[in-house]
């Protein structure tokens, strides 16, 4: 059991699959997530792969303050991700609503109201290194010895 768990731990530490979803923001944070893929930051050298497909994702990056159209769809996406899974809020919008938290806007932050959030990366937008660090530090907490924790 423990040998199998060790193999799983080793594989999971180098194979983190990421999906990101923008639930209504200015697209600044999307660009920072894309910058992680560029050669300067090169997210794949850490074994993080961006697929944008919830069915094969381990980590969901949630970007943006939640608009009414996204309330049920965000829950759907979260339910489609297989266990073990983790959601990371990127930017100020999912935390506080940022500049959209004003009178007369339709957004309803924070995103924790809809899905459980494991980590928050504040910033408007956050630096790509901050996003990278957040994924790298939150993933082992969830995936290490996942099966043993379930027992």
């Amino acid at each position: 059991m423990s040998i199998l768990q060790d193999i799983k731990n080793a594989v999971r530490s180098r194979s983190i699959h990421v999906a990101y979803v923008d639930v209504g923001s200015c697209n600044g944070c999307d660009i920072e997530v894309l910058a992680c893929l560029a050669p300067r930051y090169d997210i794949e050298q850490y074994g993080i792969y961006v697929h944008n497909n919830p069915r094969e994702a381990d980590v969901l990056l949630v970007i943006g303050s939640v608009t009414p159209q996204w309330v049920d769809k965000l829950r759907d996406i979260w339910d489609k991700i297989p266990e073990p899974k983790v959601a990371v809020a990127i930017g100020n919008c999912p935390i506080s609503g940022c500049v959209y938290a004003r009178r007369g806007t339709l957004t309803s932050p924070p995103v924790e109201k809809y899905i459980p959030i494991a980590a928050q990366v504040p910033g408007c937008p956050p630096r790509p290194t901050e996003i990278l660090n957040a994924i790298l530090s939150v993933a082992p907490l969830i995936y290490k010895d996942y099966e043993e924790k379930q027992l």
């Binding site: 100020n92 935390i95 506080s96 940022c98 500049v99 504040p122 910033g123 408007c124």
Partner: peptide, 8 residues
């Protein structure tokens, strides 16, 4: 300064 709100 509140990091979740500040836009730097």
């Amino acid at each position: 300064v509140y990091p979740g709100h500040c836009i730097r």
